[in-house]
Simulated assay, not measured.
Amino acid sequence: MTVQGAGGDAAGYRIEAVDFALDILAVVASQPDLGASDIARVLGGSRQRIFRMLKTLEARGMLERGREGKTYRLGYMALVLGNAARSQIDLIRAAEPIMRSVGQQVEETIQLRVREGFETICVARWEPERDVRVHAIIGRRRPLHAGSSKIFLAFLPEAEREHYLAHHLERFTVKTLVDPAELANHLRRIRENGYAVSQGEISDDLVSVTAPVFGIDRSVLAAINIAAPAARMPASRLSECCASIVDAAIQLSRQLGYPAGPRAD
């Protein structure tokens, strides 16, 4: 996240080969058990190019051969991605009204992040209509040890947490915690408090408060945070925002089936 004035994101760009692969997946999803020639006819591309892309998608598990080996249908990885997407979409659908409510209450940016390996990804955001605000970018990744992502690291199983801390920890600012022992103590306090505070760990002028969102299996499904320019977050307001984001996380956790709210046992 970066603090900036109002304005749109930078324009993206498209990669032709990725577009083409997605076109093939869309055709196979809507018309399973087509052969390479049939798919080429639908898309208008050369059979040779179609065949190379089919082989690549098959190797990655996105497609698999039909019974006779001459046609294609979606593979197991497509199922994995589909299930993950369905889970995240349900999470976002439940989170959006809560994010909007707390955002309107504090008039600061609200972000929802999920974990992928040793990183987190922003999957939803709410931003206030004010000229200077924290701008959250959907899809932006952060490592687990800095900023709002620390909440995931704090609640990882001990063995996974120690494995992560044994590796090099990237420093973003002078306030980023990169000493394993110091960070481990900090993570313990996060578990005790039930929320995390980041003051200048990712960007010097950025402050965030984050709470974990738990699911029915008591695992951390997501993290919800309030992010603000440091100038708008004195100690008194920081305390109020911590209470607000914990309440929001409790609401979302309960909607996702966790009856006790987002506090660890």
Rank of each mutant, 00 (worst) to 15 (best):
A243F: 01
H186P: 03
F172K: 02
I24G: 07
F20E: 14
A85H: 11
P259W: 04
Q199D: 10
K70Q: 05
T71K: 01
V27M: 06
D179K: 03
A94T: 14
E158V: 12
I50W: 11
L252N: 00
G61S: 10
A181I: 10
G12N: 04
L177Y: 07
L177I: 06
L25V: 02
F118W: 14
S244T: 02
R14S: 15
P97I: 02
S239P: 08
L153N: 00
E201D: 09
S253A: 01
Q199P: 00
G117Q: 00
R254A: 02
L238S: 05
D90V: 13
Y258N: 11
A228I: 07
V123K: 09
V178W: 04
A21H: 14
L153E: 04
L79F: 13
D247P: 01
G75M: 08
V27S: 10
E108K: 02
L187V: 02
T176F: 09
H167P: 00
S236G: 06
V18K: 05
S253G: 05
P212W: 01
A36W: 13
Q4G: 13
I50S: 15
P180Q: 01
V80T: 12
L169G: 01
E64R: 15
A95P: 03
A85Q: 11
V246A: 04
G44C: 11
A248S: 06
R142F: 12
E58Q: 11
T109V: 11
M77A: 11
R133Q: 09
A146N: 04
L43R: 03
K70F: 10
R140S: 07
A243E: 07
L63H: 10
D247V: 05
E158A: 13
N225V: 02
Q31T: 06
L54F: 11
A11Y: 06
D131G: 08
R133I: 12
A227R: 04
I224Y: 02
D23K: 08
S208W: 05
I110H: 01
P212M: 05
A78Q: 10
S203H: 03
A235R: 05
L43M: 07
R254I: 03
R130C: 07
A85F: 12
P229Q: 05
V178G: 02
E160S: 14
M99L: 07
I250K: 05
Y72W: 11
I190T: 02
R67V: 15
V102A: 08
R60S: 14
Y258K: 06
K55Y: 14
V220G: 03
S30F: 13
P128M: 13
H186E: 07
R237D: 04
G147P: 00
